[in-house]
């Protein structure tokens, strides 16, 4: 670099190696423990000697627990949530960046404000809204009792989304960070493009479909992968929004593996489950690391 900084480089290398050890050691312990059998584990307690029981543990997870089914649920919810968040973010940021009108600042502020208060903070009432999405319609209809006066009975629509894929994924879309990043990206695209498109006779929607979307392919895929992973690792909302085993997500299922705890928990089995639950997003991260980083840091340029 600039001057001879060998001693500092040495310190930096040591820090990075310590960081690598801190991140990788728990993962290594998980993998090693997953290869041991329950009997081995009881006999030797904690040990870093790999066993030969991984296939057996995996077969037990695959056939005797709900985790495979729940992993499929995670794939479905992750895909719906990612696609939904991207679609909502594209239309909103397109509106905010490319359309003149009194509302755009207001729209942007309303969206960005949602970043500060995560869904976990308002879990009780978000659950209530999901249990009856028609709640606001009922409330407006029965305000002052005008609906009852007109039709004889107060309006009582019920639309319960709990325990459905929509009910798990749509509330997780109510978060503006994706829009924030896309707005920053759209602003870096030269406005001449849109002007040229207008001169060529393209309308706003044509410009969005034929020019803006193809241009944003890279960042959109990166964001999509990131949002898929973000949905996959959610815990609190999927825990309360899905009560039946058929809609439970994999991370929740993993946490519940340990619940029948009278005896010493079968940690090798649990760690095998942790591998199944963690591997799909981990592979995505390791493969698309560069793209994700570029997608996320758009807003920071």
């Amino acid at each position: 670099m600039i001057e001879n900084t060998r001693s500092i480089d040495r310190v930096a290398t040591a820090i990075l190696i310590a960081g690598l050890a801190f991140v990788l050691a728990p993962l290594a312990v998980v993998v090693i423990t997953a290869t041991q059998s329950y009997e081995d584990f009881l006999a030797r307690n904690f040990s870093l000697v790999p066993g030969t029981h991984f296939a057996g543990n995996f077969r037990e997870i695959w056939t005797r627990t709900d985790l495979p089914r729940q992993t499929l649920n995670s794939v479905i919810v992750g895909a719906i949530t990612a696609a939904g968040r991207i679609a909502l973010a594209v239309t909103t940021s397109y509106a905010v960046v490319y359309f003149a009108g009194r509302g755009r600042g207001l729209v942007y502020a309303a969206v960005v404000a949602s970043i500060m208060l995560p869904l976990e903070l308002m879990i009780i009432t978000a659950y209530q809204v999901t249990a009856n999405v028609a709640l606001p319609l009922d409330a407006v209809a029965n305000m002052g009792g005008w609906w009852g006066a007109l039709f004889g009975a107060p309006l009582d629509l019920q639309w319960n989304l709990l325990d459905t894929y929509a009910g798990i994924s749509v509330p997780m879309m109510a978060q503006g960070s994706c829009t924030l990043i896309l707005v920053q990206f759209f602003r870096t695209i030269p406005p001449q493009l849109a002007r040229a498109a207008i001169i060529d006779g393209a309308g706003p929607l044509r410009f969005l479909r034929d020019i803006l979307l193809p241009l944003s392919k890279g960042p959109l895929t990166a964001l999509g992968i990131y949002m898929f992973i973000s949905a996959w690792v959610q815990y609190m909302w999927p825990l309360v929004a899905a009560s039946s085993p058929a809609r439970t997500m994999a991370v929740v299922g993993l946490a519940r593996l340990q619940e029948d705890a009278e005896r010493i928990p079968d940690f090798p089995l649990q760690m095998t489950g942790a591998i199944l639950v963690t591997l799909p997003p981990l592979i995505l991260i390791a493969l698309f690391q560069r793209r994700i980083v570029r997608g996320l840091t758009l807003s920071e340029k």
Partner: peptide
């Protein structure tokens, strides 16, 4: 980032 807070809790 690929590991859920609940998973790392279990681990």
């Amino acid at each position: 980032k690929a590991v859920a807070s609940a998973s790392i809790g279990v681990i």
